[in-house]
């Protein structure tokens, strides 16, 4: 058994040395195909990360018709903090609101001279848990708020939220469709390359069948060869991806005007890297298997 396995390994390595051009073509095709698919997913992953960052700024602001008295404020804040969707709540007095307005106007703040300090309404600013930073989550919070406070104006950037949610939905569909398409194209190219490399060795396959080799004996070295090439292709794809990420992707995304400042872009984590290399091995095995099924006829 061990003897046979060592023969298969020797045969696979020997074949790769004997057909360096075909072997390199397979490895490079797999590396480029895997790197393309992985680059695409890396871009999507980072855009999603950015989207999550954007949604962190999402707040619900309830402008109060009447500023609560000192005795009422504490219980109101406690009640709102109990909302399951809320992580933090901040009370902004009329004076604070005016101060913010002034500072926002900057050098033109003198426009507010003579305006009463209490002209702006007091408000509650609610920060939400990540899973509730969507329309349905916010609507839930708004409903709850309405039972606790007198407010005619609860603001949560409705327009922005709608556009943001559409963007995320479109991103999901486009990434799935494009990703699927890219994956199929990669599979097609890789399986055809393997088919061509095996086709170039059809004499060897034919002679093997003529001298009484069993299907297993014929296929195993080729599958091992496919797996080894896939492994090399996967590792090379990882190296390529790392180069693309550091030299091209990262600077481009960082310079994108919508990118939040100080965002740390993410590369594939260890499991995803392992998945990429494993995908290479699988690609090599299944690519060889499907071609061998057609080429080896006993």
């Amino acid at each position: 058994m061990l003897d046979k396995f060592s023969y298969f390994i020797r045969r696979a390595l020997h074949n790769m040395r004997q057909w360096p051009f075909l072997c390199t073509a397979s490895v490079l095709t797999m590396a480029v195909a895997l790197a393309s698919v992985a680059t695409f997913f890396l871009v999507v992953m980072n855009i999603q990360l950015m989207a999550t960052k954007w949604s962190e700024d999402l707040q619900v602001v309830a402008y109060l018709d009447r500023q609560p008295g000192t005795g009422q404020l504490g219980p109101l804040l406690d009640a709102v903090k109990q909302f399951p969707e809320v992580t933090a709540v901040k009370f902004v007095t009329k004076q604070e609101a005016m101060q913010r307005f002034r500072s926002r106007l900057g050098t033109e703040s003198n426009l507010l001279d003579g305006v009463r300090e209490d002209i702006l309404p007091a408000s509650l600013e609610l920060s939400l848990r990540p899973e509730y930073r969507n329309r349905s989550g916010i609507e839930q919070v708004v409903k709850r708020l309405e039972t606790h406070v007198d407010s005619n104006d609860i603001h949560y950037g409705q327009d922005w939220l709608e556009r943001f949610e559409t963007f995320v939905a479109v991103l999901k569909i486009v990434s799935q469709a494009l990703g699927g398409f890219l994956l199929l194209a990669a599979l097609f190219i890789v399986s055809n390359t393997i088919k061509l490399t095996l086709f170039a060795r059809r004499d060897e396959l034919e002679i093997m069948t003529l001298v009484g080799a069993t299907l297993r004996f014929i296929k195993v070295p080729f599958l091992l060869e496919g797996a080894l090439q896939g492994l090399l292709g996967g590792v090379l794809a990882l190296a390529l991806l790392s180069a693309i990420f550091n030299l091209f992707l990262s600077p481009v995304i960082q310079s994108f005007w919508l990118t939040p400042a100080g965002i740390e872009l993410i590369f594939l984590n260890f499991n995803q890297q392992l998945l990429l290399v494993t995908a290479g091995v699988m690609l090599g095995i299944f690519g060889s298997l499907s071609s061998l099924r057609k080429l080896v006829q006993i």
């Binding site: 004499d203 060897e204 002679i207 069948t209 001298v211 009484g212 006993i298």
Partner: peptide
């Protein structure tokens, strides 16, 4: 059956006009 063909072929040696040798070996 196809699975038994290899074992049949082990009893038979075949020689062809075009030799059918592996030129890379």
């Amino acid at each position: 059956s196809r699975l038994k063909i290899p074992y049949l072929r082990r009893k038979i040696g075949v020689v062809f006009q075009d030799y059918k040798l592996l030129n890379s070996r």
